[in-house]
Amino acid sequence: MEREKGQRIPRDTQEAKAKTKVRERSGKNWRITVAKIVLVPLLLFFSVVIGLMIGYGVVGHKPASEVLDLGTYKHMWDLLFAET
Rank of each mutant, 00 (worst) to 15 (best):
E2I: 11
R3V: 14
R3H: 12
K5S: 03
K5Y: 09
G6Y: 08
G6H: 08
G6I: 05
Q7L: 00
Q7P: 00
R8L: 10
R8I: 02
R8F: 06
R8M: 03
R8W: 03
I9F: 11
P10Q: 06
R11I: 12
D12C: 01
Q14H: 12
E15K: 12
A16L: 15
A16N: 12
K17C: 02
A18E: 12
A18W: 11
K19E: 13
K19F: 07
K19I: 05
T20Y: 00
K21F: 01
R23V: 07
R23A: 09
R23T: 10
E24S: 13
E24R: 15
R25T: 11
S26R: 13
G27F: 08
G27W: 08
G27C: 05
G27K: 12
K28V: 04
N29W: 08
N29T: 15
W30D: 10
W30N: 10
R31A: 04
I32V: 14
A35V: 02
A35S: 10
A35P: 00
K36G: 13
I37Y: 07
I37M: 13
V38R: 04
V38L: 08
L39R: 15
P41V: 05
P41E: 05
L43D: 03
L43C: 10
L43W: 02
L43R: 03
L44E: 08
F45C: 08
F45G: 04
F45M: 10
F45E: 07
F46T: 14
F46D: 07
S47Q: 09
V48W: 08
V48H: 07
V49N: 00
I50F: 11
M53A: 12
I54C: 06
I54V: 12
G55N: 07
Y56I: 14
G57H: 02
V58A: 06
V58T: 02
V59W: 04
G60S: 06
H61P: 00
K62S: 03
P63F: 09
P63H: 11
P63T: 13
A64T: 14
A64R: 10
S65Q: 08
E66V: 14
E66D: 15
V67F: 00
V67T: 02
V67N: 01
L68D: 02
L68F: 09
L70T: 11
L70H: 04
T72R: 05
T72S: 05
T72V: 04
K74Y: 09
K74N: 07
K74E: 12
K74R: 11
M76W: 15
M76I: 15
L80V: 10
F81M: 07
A82L: 03
A82V: 03
A82S: 12
E83R: 09
E83W: 04
E83M: 04
E83C: 01
T84N: 09
